[in-house]
Computed example of a mutant assay.
Amino acid sequence: MSNPWNNRPPRPPGNPPERRRPPRAQEDRSARAPAPREERVAGASRSELRLYGLNAVHAVFARRPEAIRKVYLTESRIPALKPLLAWCVKQRVGYRVVEEGDLDRLAASTHHEGVVADVLKVEPMPMGDWLRTLPDGTPGAALWLDGVGNPHNFGAILRSAAHFGVAGILLPRDSTLAISGAAARVAEGGAEQVPLVRMGQTENAAAQLRNAGFSLAATVVRGGVDLFAATLPKRLVYVMGAEGEGMDAQLAAACDTRLSIPGSGAVESLNVAAATAVFLAQWKQRSR
Rank of each mutant, 00 (worst) to 15 (best):
V60K: 13
D28V: 12
P83K: 03
L232W: 11
I261V: 15
A67F: 04
P139T: 01
W87L: 04
K234W: 01
N153V: 08
A182D: 07
P124H: 01
L134R: 14
H152R: 11
W283C: 09
L143T: 10
G224V: 08
A212T: 04
V237F: 09
N7S: 15
V115F: 05
K121E: 10
W144F: 15
F154Y: 15
A161M: 04
K284A: 13
A156D: 05
L51E: 07
W144P: 09
R69V: 11
V278N: 04
V89I: 07
G165W: 11
R63F: 06
H111P: 01
L131S: 05
F164C: 02
Q201F: 06
H163K: 05
P233D: 08
P17G: 08
G137I: 00
E66C: 07
R258F: 02
P16I: 08
V194M: 10
G200E: 14
V122M: 13
G189S: 06
L131W: 02
G155S: 06
S264D: 05
W144M: 12
V225S: 13
L145I: 12
V89L: 12
Y238L: 15
G189K: 01
D129S: 11
V119M: 01
V272G: 06
A25K: 02
R286N: 12
H112M: 03
F164G: 00
V221H: 07
R222T: 13
L251D: 11
N271M: 06
D256N: 13
L73W: 04
